[in-house]
Design a protein around this nucleic acid. Structure first.
Length: 357
DNA sequence: AAACCGGGGTC
DNA sequence: GACCCAGGTTT
């Protein structure tokens, strides 16, 4: 159904020319587009996963200044890398990137692999990032199918598969493989993504300005608003916590490092107590003493924080407190000065608490 | 195949 | 609020 016949070759060649010439004319000037090294392409593609261009730009500039090459990133402390990534989200991207870069330095003499097999085995490099590096950095005709490309191709070729399902990506990859330019796969792939970002938008696509309107089956049948078809994911669960800003007699503040797996792995936070463990202040003090080994005085309510993740909603009820006795149990955190806190990576929700200090 | 994993912009 | 964003990993 989506297969390309010999009769389509001419049509595809016109599509390639229309897309590429448009891209070369209107493309945005982005920091990772100025004669990029494979490492620069790699870093930018990881940062751009599920993240808008405008959000990434300042992070990319700072990251490249601190870690200009694989050797610099490989040698860095993980905590410093996370601090540089702070606020960008999906923190496993940063940890996987460093793991993979260390492998490139030790196994490939610091040269980013230029083949699908080795690239695909690197941590955090999936089908999209692999294709992006091969096409953009090495000019190989490999598909790089992201959310933009799924939407653009599903409209151009009237693909009615549910793009929320893994099967759809395989179909789109097959279509792109048949259409991609052998002369300039970099501009072809980037052109598809640029088209999705600037013209072929999810809502109210600007079909009047589209360089490949003549090739679009959805436009021909006035289906552009109906495609792509995407099933909606279920809504988030809500989790309620009390978060505590606890000071000791030296005005240092209790913080703890989160576990190395799961949500916000290896980031730092202020102590959080699940609301169902402590309905009253007395229960809260009791529970905290049991878990942490120290006695606290809970003072005033500081603020409420609502934080939305992709799959959870946090409601944080923030109180100030002082520690009045006892001995902090091993591994339950440490009291640090305000200056020391600034060196540590915190999730955005807890940065809002830190601002209250 | 479905769930997990952040944070911010848009409509 | 719902959806989306230059996705990947784990279960």
């Amino acid at each position: 159904m989506y297969q390309t016949s010999i009769d389509d070759f001419l049509e595809i060649e016109e599509f390639q020319q229309d897309l590429i010439s448009w891209f070369l004319r209107v493309q945005r000037e982005l920091p990772w587009r100025q004669n990029p090294t494979p490492y620069q392409v790699w870093v930018s593609e990881i940062m751009l996963q599920q993240t808008r261009v405008d959000t990434v730009i300042p992070y990319y500039d700072r990251f490249m200044q601190k870690y200009p090459n694989p050797e610099a990133l490989a040698a860095a402390e993980e905590e410093d890398v996370l601090k540089t990534w702070e606020g960008l989200g999906y923190y496993s991207r940063a940890r996987n990137l460093q793991t993979a870069v260390r492998e490139v330095v030790s196994e490939y003499n610091g040269k980013v692999p230029d083949n699908a097999k080795e690239l695909g085995q690197l941590k955090g490099v999936g089908p999209y990032t692999k294709g992006a590096i091969l096409s953009i950095a090495y000019q190989q005709p490999e598909p790089a199918v992201d959310g933009n490309v799924m939407r653009v191709i599903s409209r151009i070729r009237k693909v009615e598969e549910d793009i929320a399902k893994p099967k759809a990506r395989k179909i789109i990859e097959g279509i792109v493989s048949d259409m991609i330019s052998a002369e300039d796969p970099s501009s072809f792939n980037q052109g598809l993504m640029e088209l999705g970002a600037l013209i072929c938008k999810p809502k109210n696509p600007l079909c009047d300005e589209c360089p490949v309107q003549a090739h679009c089956r959805a436009y021909k049948e006035d289906l552009q608003e109906m495609l792509p078809i995407k099933s909606r994911k279920k809504s988030q669960r809500t989790e309620k916590y009390v978060a505590l800003l606890i000071r000791d007699e030296n005005h240092r503040i209790l913080v703890q490092k989160r576990p190395e797996k799961g949500l916000l792995a290896n980031l730092w936070q202020f102590p959080m107590i699940p609301m169902d463990k402590a309905n009253t202040t007395d229960e809260l003090v009791q529970w905290f003493g049991d878990q942490y080994g120290i006695t606290i005085d809970v003072h005033k309510h500081l603020t409420d924080i609502k934080h939305v993740f992709s799959h959870i909603i946090w409601n944080l009820d923030v109180y100030s407190a002082t520690s009045t006795g006892g001995c902090l149990q091993e591994g339950k955190g440490e009291f640090l000065s305000a200056e020391e806190l600034q060196q540590l990576p915190f999730p955005v929700s807890h940065q809002k608490i830190a601002r209250l200090i």
